[in-house]
Design a protein around this nucleic acid. Structure first.
Lengths: 188, 188
DNA sequence: AGCTCTTGACTGAATATTCAGTCAGGATTA
DNA sequence: TAATCCTGACTGAATATTCAGTCAAGAGCT
């Protein structure tokens, strides 16, 4: 992986965050990375190859990012930080969120993307699950973790589309957390 | 709305379910509807017009669909039916779900889609909110409704990508419902 | 050191492909 | 027959892809 290759992948990720997977133009990526179009073909064979490499890259970055941040006084603080970290007024976070959102949406149509995506999701889930165990959540924390991460993605979709403000989105997540870590009577 | 126009919109919806909004090719739609490409231009002016009409159509169908199904003995049954109706082993449901998912993902990049999308979402939300009130949910049912509908979308993304089975997805939704309609101590 | 030989990284220009959109006119119906 | 509905053949612009060739750096030889 030469520095140029890396620059290209980062440029491609930025382009995806700006135009989406389907709106990705190899010329734009080349311009963004300040290299010739041909170089992309030299390194990644064709548009599809570039796309695959970029999506892998996005996947990796998302995974790193989620595993990194975990600071907080109490266990609950850490759980909240872990989940709310995805939804913030910060260009990098937003860009990453858009890219992840695209990845998820694209996977519906391209089976090839599913495996790495599922893997990253599983890692994220287990991280959340551990945090849930830490706060002493009752119930099946495996299920709860999946619910929370899926909720993040659902809320993100609306946040990114401008349907929810950052504050509102974060409040929803917090509310959900508080409800979910509480035991349920389940008296139907 | 001539029969042909209707056929075109349905064909377009099928194409979207297969390739996504951004993968929609007017030629494909024409072929799927078994009419000439030109006819699409005759009726819908251009690709964008076709898209707008199709998305309206999908939007309408989704709305109808959500509002229709509400049967159930108890209030809780009705709430569950309202939410679980989106995730079922049924080709039509799945197709509609994919289209809706695409709509949501595309709106991140195309501001024009946001308004009708937000409107349909709001209608759905208030419907869910009413159902929550019926079951006597405690807390801010407005927030809870938004959380639940966002959760459906998040879970749908994974269900459509094959990451969750239909059963698993439905179980998660049910679990979330039971937790959310229960009062929270929120003793932090 | 100085001299080839080789290879990987890279480019600009040319070519191939894809796709939305047009148009002249043929069918069908009121 | 006049309006509406519809089609096949076509075009131009945007894009992906190819290719012949440059350049810098390292390996091996004398």
């Amino acid at each position: 992986m030469t520095p140029r290759q890396d620059a290209i992948l980062q440029a491609a990720a930025r382009c995806i965050a700006r135009q989406g997977v389907r709106g990705l133009r190899v010329h734009d990526v080349a311009a963004e990375a300040d290299v010739s179009t041909s170089l992309l073909y030299y390194h990644f064979t064709d548009r599809e190859g570039l796309l695959a490499a970029t999506l892998d890259h996005i996947n990796d970055v998302s995974a790193d990012h989620r595993l990194a941040r975990a600071a907080g006084e109490t266990a609950l603080d850490r759980l909240e930080a872990l989940l709310l970290g995805e939804i913030r007024d910060d260009d990098d976070i937003r860009t990453g969120s858009i890219a992840w959102n695209e990845l998820r949406a694209t996977a519906v149509f391209e089976a090839g993307l599913r495996e790495p995506l599922a893997h990253t999701t599983a890692t994220w889930n287990s991280r959340v699950r551990a945090a849930l165990d830490d706060v002493g959540a009752s119930g099946d924390t495996d299920h709860l973790a999946t619910i929370l991460t899926a909720l993040i993605e659902g809320v993100s979709g609306r946040w990114l589309g401008g349907e929810l403000s950052t504050d509102h989105a974060r409040t929803l997540i917090r509310t959900a957390i508080h409800h979910l870590i509480t035991a349920t009577g389940k008296s139907t």
